[in-house]
Design a protein around this nucleic acid. Structure first.
Lengths: 158, 158
DNA sequence: GCTCCTGAGTCTTTAGTTTGAACTTAGCTA
DNA sequence: TAGCTAAGTTCAAACTAAAGACTCAGGAGC
C-alpha cells in the first residue's frame, strides 16, 4: 500500500481514514474478536447445537461457554430454541439465526485463507456448485454476479 | 441446519465433522482470534504502518501492540521494513506481506457483514469495479468467475 | 418416595493476560 | 550538552480465563 523506500514523495498514512465506530469491520471485530467466539460459531455452522456437545467438542470451560452463548444470543447471532428428544425433558439448542447464517461467507473466506496459508494437508471441506460440481472460491463480484480480479478493485473512502 | 422439533428423525450433530487442527478456519482463528489482532490488520490495510501511529490510532497499550506485532511478523502476515524519512534516523514500518494482503477478502467479508447487521449509518467504504464503477460484494464463484447463489452451494466433508 | 443420572448451568479459587504508567534506548537537533 | 521523539521494555494492579466443585431440574430405576 505504501512504499517505504520512496518516501518523502508519498507520505505515510498516520491514522485510519475510517472511524472505528463507523467501520463495519471494527464493529464486527468487537463482537467476534476473542479466542472462543469464532470457534463456537464454527461448531454452530457444522450443526453442533447443544451446550454439552459444544463444551466437549471445544474443551471450553463451562463458564466461558455460558457467557459466550449469552453474548451471541444477545447479539442476535444465535437463537436458543427448546426441543425435546423422545421422552427426555425439554432441552435447549443454540442455532444460527439468519444474522448468524449470514456470517457464512466470512467464515468461508477465513477458512480458505487458513487453508492457503496455515494448513499443511488438503482440506476436508469441499464447497461445490450443486449443478456443475465445480469448486468454489470467495471473490468480489459485480451485482450481476461476475467476479472482479483484485487489481481491478477500487477501494475508496467517502 | 437441524430442525429441533422434528428430531428423532434427524438426530442432532454431536461434534464437528472436521478436526480442529485440520480445519483452516480453526487454525486461522487461533492466530487472529483476539481483541486486537484484527484491528491491527485493519490499520495495516488502511496503510497505517508505524508503531506509534498504530498505538495512537487504536489506543492500544504499547506492550500489547509490541507482542501482537511480533506475533504477526512471526506468522508471516506483516513484514518489518526499515525506512528513512528525510534526514531522520532509520525507523521501521509494519506492512502487510503477500500472506497478509491475501486476508483482504476475509476482512472485506467481515466488513460487509458488519455493515449489514451492526452498522447504523451508511458505509464510508466504497468497493467498486474500476472499469464499470459497479459496487462489489463478496460471493462464492466458480473457477471461471461466476457467482453461485447460496442455495446452490453444496457443502461436503470428505 | 428416594436415589441416581444427565444436561445445563453457576460459584469459587487459582492462573494467566491486559492495562497504564514509568523507565530505556537510539539517533537526531538546537 | 541537553532535549526530543519513535519505539520499545518493565512492573504492579486490575481484569479475565481456567479447572473443578457445587446446584438444579426432570426423568429412570428400585
Amino acid at each position: 500500500m505504501s512504499t517505504p523506500e520512496t518516501y518523502p514523495s508519498e507520505p505515510p498514512v498516520r491514522s485510519a481514514p475510517v472511524a472505528r465506530d463507523a467501520c463495519g469491520m471494527a464493529l464486527a471485530t468487537e463482537l467476534l474478536g476473542d479466542r472462543w467466539t469464532l470457534l463456537i460459531l464454527r461448531e454452530a455452522f457444522y450443526g453442533v447445537s447443544r451446550f454439552d456437545d459444544l463444551r466437549a467438542d471445544l474443551s471450553i470451560p463451562r463458564g466461558i461457554l455460558s457467557t459466550r452463548l449469552k453474548a451471541l444470543v444477545g447479539a442476535g447471532l444465535l437463537v436458543k430454541t427448546p426441543y425435546r428428544q423422545g421422552r427426555d425433558r425439554v432441552r435447549y439448542a443454540y442455532q444460527l439465526s439468519p444474522m448468524g447464517q449470514d456470517l457464512a461467507l466470512t467464515l468461508i473466506a477465513l477458512m480458505q485463507w487458513g487453508e492457503r496459508h496455515l494448513q499443511t494437508g488438503p482440506s476436508p471441506v469441499r464447497l461445490t456448485d450443486r449443478r456443475t460440481g465445480q469448486m468454489l472460491q470467495i471473490a468480489l463480484v459485480t451485482p450481476d454476479g461476475q467476479a472482479v480480479p483484485a487489481q481491478q478493485v477500487d477501494f475508496q473512502i467517502v
